[in-house]
Design a protein around this nucleic acid. Sequence first.
RNA 1: GACUCGGUAGCUCAGCUGGAUAGAGCAACGGCCUUCUAAGCCGUCGGUCGGGGGUUCGAAUCCCUUCCGAGUCGCCA
Length: 573
Amino acid sequence: MLWGGKMINIIKNTIKKELELFLFNTYNQEIEITVEKPKNQKMGDISIPVFSAVKVLRKPLPQVVETISEQIKNSEYYNYFDKINSVSGFINITLNKGIFAKSIIKEVQQTKNFGESNLGEGKTIVMDYSSPNIAKPFSVGHLRSTVIGHAIGNILEKLNYEVVRVNHLGDFGTQFGKIIYAYLNHGDKDKVEENPIEELMKLYVDFHERAKEDPSIEDEARKIFKELEQGNPKYVKLWEHFREVSLEEYMKVYEILDVKFNSYNGEAFYNDKMKAVVDELIEKNLLVKDEGAMIVSLSDNLPPALIQKSDGSTLYITRDLAALFYRKNTYDFDEVLYVVGNEQKLHFTQLREVVKTMGYDYYEDIHHINFGLVLQDGKKMATRKGKIVRLMDVLQEAKKLSLNYINEKNPTLENKEEIAEKVGVSAIVFNDLKNYRANDIEFNLSDMVNFVGQTGPYLQYTSVRITSIIEENVIDKENLDYKLYTSDASFELIKTIDEYPEILIKAKEEYSPSILAKYLLTLASYFNTYYAQEKVMVEDLIERNTKLFLISIVRDILDDGMKLLGMQVIKKM
RNA sequence: GACUCGGUAGCUCAGCUGGAUAGAGCAACGGCCUUCUAAGCCGUCGGUCGGGGGUUCGAAUCCCUUCCGAGUCGCCA
């Protein structure tokens, strides 16, 4: 990991400051010194390129190397260093493994909730994620927003942020005009009762087919939506019903994923809060009529934001503005995160700009946590054409394959079904989180349910292996032999343990669960190497205890990290 | 056409605030279960970092240009 661990960063920053101060005092020159991790571990643990100093000081390279190397000996952390050598302009420091390992293990011992931070103390972050569109099946596309949002929320809480999780249901808009139109004109009420989501989806697809033949029905749909917005009781009743049956279906998914929200206020919730937004825009002289619609002009070559349609009904951004103001007033957030796909980038840029134009400073706290599309055959999945992959189908498939694995690898396992679901679902979740969120992903079932290599099951399996070694053993944290932590395999583990707190902070800064996901893979991989090299349950009690303690730390981090990612932690598999 | 994001090994991706021989996993091939779960471990094979310029002691990383892919671009969300 490039950013290093907590302990090693303290050492690196200290060296940096010490050297910069020394150079300033000696040569009266401000020289930036970079202290980094060598690419190759054989070169040491800390590396200092001296090229920048050579350039500024205009002295021969060997002389600069000599001067800086000598100065390093005066470092506060000199007793941590085993050796200092130089190779072609780099000064490399190798740490004393025993001292370094001990300081890290002590740190872990003294920390109750390892990895937490006071970064978020007293700060509130509102998160808008999952947000499926009512009357459509929960697709693999919705999964991304759900698991990315869930994971980021968990990481924020670990860093002591107050997190408000909002499921901003797509329960309003012209699409409901379409569905209601289709339902009233071509719908089979019995079929819809029987299998609401599927039938409503079919009606929606059917509507677009018909609209190709007869575009006038689009106007019909818009008219119905406008009346719905104004409270036509017949339409409102239908809409309420559709919303209810959809939510029921979604709750099943959320239960499987173990995802919970503080609020399910969707777009419709803001129906009566938009007039205030429009009024404020008028008052601030920002709203202008253009081609019949009401728009806000934006700078920076941005297309204008459409606030109101020609017929007076509202649009997406109008509802998002109302939602934003409501959230600011209700939660007084420090940041608001919208976990929404790449394709809405322009929308959120416009949203920010409108807020800025209205004179609110907190436009800077609005973050679009964009993620890549789930593509099919290289193209965006089109709901309107009914091309959709249902998440439930994928989860079922994952569970089935997971069960096959269990029957093959561990046929006597108890609660096979339960474990199979936990492994299968976690595999899907991890697969969605392991890569940088903004990358598009091609839908590929066999990738999603892969259980070998850099996968969710690999992490679970590693944790399970550790659990099975520890079993009923009681670990005495005070009775450790730190010398045993200096073997290559142990030391790699310890250096990686040291990185956990920094990784979580990095994941927050980038709003990127993949940073944590990749880290857990690295940690698991080092453990499995360790496992192959060293026997834990040895005769010598101190050695056994020392090793048990190390692997228990690894297990705790793995389990903690998996929970943060929204995966299931298991004891056996 | 404009704007945004992407192009790194056969495949999926890390690395991108410039540093030393470009890293993983999968696939392929070869080893390792009478030592704690082999969903694992070890090894081999595999790359002109899309192409071309530039800046620099040093470029996958920064700048310019070009090609390719995806997405978006006023009355959908």
